[in-house]
Structures are given as structure tokens and as C-alpha cells.
Design a protein around this nucleic acid. Structure first.
Ligand SMILES: [Mn+2]
Ligand SMILES: [Mn+2]
Ligand SMILES: [Zn+2]
Ligand SMILES: [Zn+2]
Lengths: 140, 140
DNA sequence: ATTCTATATTAGAATTATTCTAAGATAGAG
DNA sequence: CTCTATCTTAGAATAATTCTAATATAGAAT
């Protein structure tokens, strides 16, 4: 189940998502969907792209991350004011957030359960349930 | 149990919290701790202060909100990138967040329970558990 | 293959929320 | 009343993100 033919996978992923497989989107998709679960920030992904010799603007990285999120390839995680993370793990799960390192770490769905979810106010639906466990260093 | 003598209460609150009861802090404390649970943004509180004829800078509002949070009089709630809310309800509870209106609404602790909280990574403690239910309009 | 047009990319400016700086004001201890 | 640590503030600075409007490209149609 290793990621064979990553180019073809990225291409298909985009086509199936209704997004034009442009050079930039293909390159970013290959970086993002390499088979591992990642929590990326825009600036960081941009850096990785440049390091790989891919010429892409930061604006396009932002555009692409949002488009991928809209079509359900990514999920946005909000942990801190002024910081957006994009998560390649779109399955139901939650997060530890370490405020010291800025690192996000998955909590598998089976390790945290919510009992008795309240009803939303009239005329609204619950679109997303975000659980963030904020971590701090354990110092006596 | 109505809020009698709001000035004295604000004064005592600050003294007990180890904060100098300055004119600005007293005024902001009176606006914040009026007995109702509030979810305020800095800019908004600044507007309210100015509307009340209280001369205070936005920088001081930010400083004060953070100081109040540090001493436990407030709690910061993060719901969206680049948006911090300060909550006067410091008891254990969670939130609905309506992405359309930007409104935060309390979910009392007894209406939502978390079962099986995972262990934090070694050397860390869970400092805070944030549960945000993101709401969207219910349109067929 | 060539043309055409909707869609995508981009540099750079703009925006927004927040924090920083460093100079002046004030609380309150002595 | 003095003095000093603490506080407030205007304005600049920062950081993340979005916007603008000019250029480029994908891919459908010829
Ligand atoms: Mn977004
Ligand atoms: Mn803060
Ligand atoms: Zn995740
Ligand atoms: Zn609340």
C-alpha cells in the first residue's frame, strides 16, 4: 500500500476534485499527500516547494490550501490567534497543541469521545467539532 | 445576588488579583464583570469604553485583557484565525461558534462531556481543553 | 496545430489583529 | 510629599493573510 506513482495520484486527485491540474497544484499536492499525515502552515509549505525547486508564489500556496480545503482534501485547524494549520488527515480525530513548540499532534478518534453533544440553536447545524488539548511543559 | 456596588467590586477584584486598581483597569473591569457572561473582543471593549466616556488606549485594552487572563479573571477563546475572544465565564464550559455572525455562545459543562481523555505526551500537561462546535446555517 | 477564453498565477500593495517601543504619567509605599 | 516601580499611550512595527489587477496557462473549440 506504498504510494506508487505519486504524480498520477496527484493528477487524479485534482481531476476528481474538479481542480485544474496546474503545475503548482500538482507540485503542492505531491508535497502534501505523500502518504503521511501532516499539519502544515502556508509559509512552511511554500518553503518546502521552493527548496524542491518548484516556483510558486505564497499567494498561490494560500489559494491552493483553501481550495484543497473546500473540496475536502484538507481540513483547517485553528489553535492560536493568527495561525492556521492545514491537516492532511481528514478523518474524524482531534488534536494536542503544544504552545511551546507550536506542534500539532493527532489524537485518534478512538482515544477521545464526546458524550451528549448539545443540540445546535434553531436554524443551524454543527459543521465541525474541534477539540484541542492545549499542552504546557510539566515543570514542578 | 444582583451586582451591588460595582465600583467597590471592581476595586476589590483588582486588589485581590494583585493588579493596581488604575482608572483604566477599574473602568474595564466594571464593563466586563457586570454580572452577565460575556465574550468580548478587544476592539469591541475599547469601543464600549470610549462610548462611556472612558479615555483608554487600545494597547491598554489588550494589556488589560491579557493581564486579567493571566490572573484568572478571564479566559481566552480561540475560534478563528486572527480573532481572540475573552470570556468572562471562567467556569468549565464549551462553545458554539457561528461562523456567519461571529457570535460565541456558551455550552454549559453538563450539556457536553468528554469521555476518555487521552494521556498527554511525556513531560507535558493538559492545560486547557477547548471544544468548539462550529455552526453553519441550515439551508436545504 | 492554432485560437480563444475561462481560469489560474503572481508581485506587490493592502488589510487586520496584535504587539512593541520608548516616552510620559500615576499609584502608593515610605 | 517624594520617589520609584508600575502603568499608559501614541505611533511604529510585525505577522499572517487577503486583495488587486496584470500576465500566463489549461484545455475546449475550431
Ligand atoms: Mn481560511
Ligand atoms: Mn494572547
Ligand atoms: Zn490532525
Ligand atoms: Zn464562554
Amino acid at each position: 500500500m506504498a504510494a506508487t506513482r505519486p504524480y498520477a495520484n496527484a493528477y487524479d486527485l485534482l481531476r476528481e476534485s474538479g481542480l485544474r491540474p496546474t503545475r503548482q497544484r500538482l507540485a503542492l499536492a505531491k508535497l502534501l499527500f505523500d502518504g503521511t499525515d501532516r499539519h502544515v502552515r502556508a509559509e512552511q509549505l511554500h518553503g518546502e516547494a521552493l527548496a524542491d525547486g518548484i516556483r510558486v508564489s505564497l499567494a498561490t500556496v494560500y489559494n491552493t490550501l483553501h481550495q484543497f480545503t473546500e473540496v475536502g482534501l484538507l481540513r483547517e485547524v485553528i489553535v492560536e490567534s493568527g495561525r492556521a494549520y492545514f491537516d492532511t488527515n481528514i478523518s474524524d480525530h482531534h488534536h494536542f497543541f503544544c504552545e511551546n513548540s507550536g506542534e500539532l499532534r493527532d489524537i485518534p478518534a478512538d482515544q477521545l469521545a464526546i458524550a451528549r453533544l448539545p443540540d445546535p440553536p434553531a436554524g443551524k447545524t454543527v459543521k465541525r467539532v474541534d477539540v484541542i488539548l492545549h499542552l504546557a511543559d510539566l515543570e514542578d
